[in-house]
Write a protein that binds this DNA or RNA. Structure first.
Length: 469
RNA sequence: CGGGAAGUAGCGCAGCCUGGUAGCGCACUACACUGGGGGUGUAGGGGUCGCAGGUUCAAAUCCUGUCUUCCCGACCA
């Protein structure tokens, strides 16, 4: 049988790059045209979805951040994805600052490595196992110790290459018996995990300390109050381990911590060159424990100084020495020519879970209250009357000016009533709301509202862009 | 995995007990009015009742199986 094949013209294909390269590729400008709510995609829900039990899950569905795809598996809608990326970036910046290097390991792993470490059988049903067309055993990675150790042992031979700290931000899958609480306890989740390699235990502790400090800074930048608590090292093992617990009234577990934490300062960004031990010593000097570790009968501490609250675990750091390096042969040649098993630590932050944590810690009856650092947009501009030409013109102008000033702005130009716009804007939770209607137009003022405090003030139309830039 | 519930329009639900033309509210579409806190009216569109099998003249409704989702517990970033 002869198939007719379309013959391509002989003329060489020539792409015109000029038009593309001349464009301004800055995010703000590229996005500016679509940040009109009438053209954007934020499907908000007025009613409470029945399956969502906790406030962050409800608000994430209502504000159009996520939609459930299967139990514990979610699609990230544009607004949710924007927040996720912002969190991811803050995590990334602080990791880089602390000296870690980013790479990206795959989600699908071969079973071989896991058989070598012995965890293929140990991990149990929580690990999602897959078979490819050739019958090879694969798995969707629940964590990456095996892979990273394999990379390390293949590429690193000498103590001169140490210390080394590698991280990635990648989707993981753990087939939880019972996923719940939306993104807080999903099966698929985005996690930053990293692994430090050092020659000696002392240097390993230094790497641990760097991560400890990086975590303090990361959570603070996310607008969270996180307290490091001594953790049960559990199956991962090791001597040194802390959980970072974010305080939120609706947290999953009860926590007990010394009032003295209130006075501690978050380390500055230049601390990594110096000795970190005093910082870690300070933050670990006071009592702090989750209900698992806290003995109510015999707390071993004067409860008069202890406050209780609820918290959500958002990070966990471990130093476990040669627990994995020894069985997997991750060693280097030391300065004396001897072969030394490296000292390892691993450090995790639940990036997707953090969105839930942030909302749990920051919301009210009307919706989400984003900390400015992770807000999907800084400002929401509302045209309260789209039938009024002058309103439209003025709002369009403000929108352009905000965009030109580099302010991340969402412009509600929909043909909705004012009430609907206010309600959606509160639900979405942008830090600043700018409302302009015919009434304000007459006096030359817009209403500026701070979402967090609820404070409103009149600001001259001509001043508002500068005010929020 | 143990215990408990639920699958009917995009969302929230009624109808099932007692089998007989598939409903309500919100959302959606069109038009008009309204225009500073989810406004009003008129007219519309949309559902093989999770799936499969069985009983019956007839099944959303009764029976069996199955899948999915949610809640409580043990587990966990």
């Amino acid at each position: 049988m002869i198939k007719k094949i379309a013959v391509l013209p002989r003329k060489p294909l020539r792409y015109r790059y000029d038009n593309v390269t001349k464009q301004d590729n800055s995010n703000t400008k590229a996005e500016s045209k679509i940040m009109r709510l009438s053209r954007y995609f934020i499907p908000t829900i007025k009613e409470t979805p029945s399956e969502a039990q906790i406030v962050s899950h409800r608000l994430m569905l209502r504000a159009g951040l996520i939609r459930q795809s299967a139990a514990g598996i979610y699609t990230w809608l544009p607004l949710g994805l924007k927040v996720l990326k912002k969190i991811e970036n803050i995590v990334r910046e602080e990791q880089n600052r602390a000296g870690a290097h980013e790479l990206l390991m795959p989600t699908i792993q071969s079973a071989d490595l896991w058989q070598e470490s012995g965890r293929y059988d140990d991990y149990g049903k929580e690990m999602l196992r897959i078979e490819d067309r050739h019958g090879r055993e694969l798995l969707y990675g629940p964590t990456n110790e095996e892979l990273i150790t394999d990379i390390f042992r293949r590429e690193v031979r000498s103590y001169r290459d140490l210390p080394l700290n590698l991280y990635h931000i990648q989707w993981k899958f753990r087939d939880e018996i019972r996923p719940r609480f939306g993104v807080m306890r999903g099966r698929e989740f985005l996690m930053k995990d990293n692994y430090s390699f050092d020659l000696t235990a002392e240097e390993g502790v230094h790497s641990y300390n760097a991560m400890f400090v990086a975590y303090l800074r990361t959570f603070a930048r996310l607008g969270l109050r996180a307290i490091p608590m001594k953790a049960d090292t559990g199956p991962i093992g090791g001597d040194l381990s802390h959980e970072f617990i974010v305080l939120a009234e609706t947290g999953e577990s009860e926590v007990f911590f010394d009032k003295g934490f209130d006075a501690f300062e978050i380390p500055g960004e230049d601390v990594f060159d110096g000795d970190l031990q005093p910082i870690v010593d300070q933050w670990t000097s006071l009592y702090a424990a989750t209900d698992e570790m806290h003995d109510v009968e015999n707390p071993g501490v004067d409860m008069k100084n202890i406050q209780t609250g609820r918290g959500i675990e958002v990070g966990h750091i471990f130093f476990f020495g040669d627990k994995y390096s020894k069985p997997m042969g991750a060693s280097v040649q030391g300065p004396e020519g001897d072969i030394v098993d490296v000292q390892m630590g691993s450090y995790g932050i639940g990036v997707s879970r953090l969105i839930g944590g942030i909302i749990e810690a920051s919301h009210d009856d009307n919706g989400i209250i984003w900390p400015e650092s992770v807000a999907p947009f800084k400002v929401g501009l509302m045209n309260l009357n789209v039938k009024n030409d002058e309103c439209v013109e003025t709002c369009d102008r403000l929108y352009k000016e905000f965009t030109a000033a580099g302010v991340e702005i969402l412009y509600d130009d929909r043909k909705e009533g004012a009430g609907a716009k206010f309600a959606d804007m509160d639900l979405i939770g942008l830090p600043w709301q700018v409302a302009l209607g015919p009434r304000g137009l007459k006096s030359g003022m817009v209403e500026l509202k701070n979402r967090a405090t609820g404070e409103r003030e009149e600001v001259a139309i001509d001043d508002i862009v500068a005010r929020l830039s």
